[in-house]
Design a binder for these strands. Sequence first.
DNA 1: CGTCAAAATGGTATCGGTAACATCGCGGCC
DNA 2: GGCCGCGATGTTACCGATACCATTTTGACG
Lengths: 353, 353
Amino acid sequence: MARTPPGNLPQDPEAPDALPRHARTGKAVTIRDVAKVAGVSPITVSRALNHPELVTPDTLERVRAVVSRTGYVPNEIAGSLRSRRSGIIAAVFPQITNSMFVDTIQALSDDLRQEGYQVLLGLSSYGEREDELIAGIVGRRPEGIYLTGIAHAPDTRRRLIASHIPVVEAWDLTPSPIDMLVGFSHEKVGEAMARYLLARGHREIGLVWGNDLRAGVRRQGLLSVLAENGIHELPTSLEPAPGMFQRGREGLAELLGSGARVSAVACSSDVLAQGVIAEARDRGIRIPEDIAVMGFGDFDFAAHTSPSLTTIAIEKALIGRLAAQALLARIQGREVPERIVDVGFRLVERGST
Amino acid sequence: MARTPPGNLPQDPEAPDALPRHARTGKAVTIRDVAKVAGVSPITVSRALNHPELVTPDTLERVRAVVSRTGYVPNEIAGSLRSRRSGIIAAVFPQITNSMFVDTIQALSDDLRQEGYQVLLGLSSYGEREDELIAGIVGRRPEGIYLTGIAHAPDTRRRLIASHIPVVEAWDLTPSPIDMLVGFSHEKVGEAMARYLLARGHREIGLVWGNDLRAGVRRQGLLSVLAENGIHELPTSLEPAPGMFQRGREGLAELLGSGARVSAVACSSDVLAQGVIAEARDRGIRIPEDIAVMGFGDFDFAAHTSPSLTTIAIEKALIGRLAAQALLARIQGREVPERIVDVGFRLVERGST
DNA sequence: CGTCAAAATGGTATCGGTAACATCGCGGCC
DNA sequence: GGCCGCGATGTTACCGATACCATTTTGACG
């Protein structure tokens, strides 16, 4: 690796220096360098860059010229330390492949960037690691934290509260969030799915269901409504997260293999549902005539499968947008009108039921 | 909101001052506080946390006890400033909804976190803003930067080179990357698509194509091979960036509406292709008998559409993994064996052609 | 032309860690 | 017993910006 060329010592005034490579040719340029060259004090440079309105147009221009000539890039780390504003919002998701969180991330990120914030992405991939992840994140002193879901280790919760960092939990509902909340009731989603299937005359309902937390809550809701209607045991195929198409196929195979009779299959996600549909097609099972299929999420493809997929639509991007707003409001000291926002959901009836 | 438990500060002389706004109850605990309580110097605390092997088991335990009792969370910003290691890798993507980048992000993030790095996510959503985005990112002094694609403003390129930060460009190929590169040739993808369709006997080929940069290169490759075979003009429907299902439908409608005869439709992404298939189905057009359809990306659903989709498979996660490795190698001063890695692609033949 | 408030700029301390170097303590060895 | 070496810990300075307050300059106005 490149060594530093000799003699990049102090009173070496200029030298366009042949750039070595990775080299640290005579230090990176700091605000002091810029100040010196522009003939002002460092703080004036700082002002010129961050509060141009506080500076004479004349000096402003001078500073800017020097900045662009020297290629100075302010060290935001130093700035963050002193100003106690990191300009960072952390966002934690369980995982993003095959998930509906992408739209939320996109919206969140877009809205935050608008206000000069960057998103620090935390993927707690497989469960347990959320704690450590958040511990590491808090150390970076983000100005706000977006969390997926409401289930967090008690330690994590305590740590977050103690940190006084604004927090939004999302994609779920609870009366006692850590701080703020944007979500919807998974229980009610499950109930709605059950009621819909019952209304369509189904009583032999099978489940192809992911085993993640929120899916579990939806299942509870679904089961409770079915129980009220005298349906107590239903054939179920539980799939490990993340729900992939292949798992949906296997799920239907498992249900049918168990010998149970099903007139409808409810799935915890559209992805699984599409797998179910594919498997049914391969087996010559007609949908919805032989078996009705219902998903969750209203993924983009849901309207375009064959048959198109009945599902539950969530305003995924809206969640991100509202979460961003909530965080920004809190950061900027504005009043947060509602700490808890329920974005609801919508049952979309299509060809698969 | 939780109040701070009383007296977690030694001979705290003054009042916890009525919390002003953001509730700064008697200051956050710093490494000095921990040191004082544990009866050691700050640097020993630092060592206990970051290099436990340099510290007596006895002091280590003592420090840890105090840390957990006080709820001390090291301020990584301060640490980063002094140590010049931010522990951050920035990753820039054009946009992530409806895109194939999610798998790459996931793999990248997983592998980096393994090594203690966090991902700062930059979504340059709609074009022009990549410059500003990167300018802002460099200020945060990431230890590595992942960029999607090879087309960057000359200014950006210069700035990145000047920053001496390791850079990986991905999802594309060029002999002259900024630093390192993990990708594949879009031109060859286009050529492969063309050859495949020709081999299947198609000469009346329509395009439903996204207008992003890399798609454009694939199109060039495709057109050049067709031109070599005497096919010069092909009906094309150009779709604005994120390629959605709906756009695919519209695309096919446009092709058919133009009166052109097509025996095959090539799409710049599986998402568009699925739209095309849906539209064809609605119009009673049989696939592949009447029209063959081909996509790109091998999205998860590609194997499960009806008919299943012939497409080009990319090892999306592998790209993320290799990019992470490349960055880590550079950061840790290891030799990077190949600065340019071609991960290639694979044509997957399925039912739609 | 002097006065005074407002605007522009500057000096100094500081954010909270860690690098670099210094010091201390202790056991082993000749 | 004295010296050496090394492991454990401490002292000091510093990373690079900005908050805070002081100072100087400008300009409006009587």
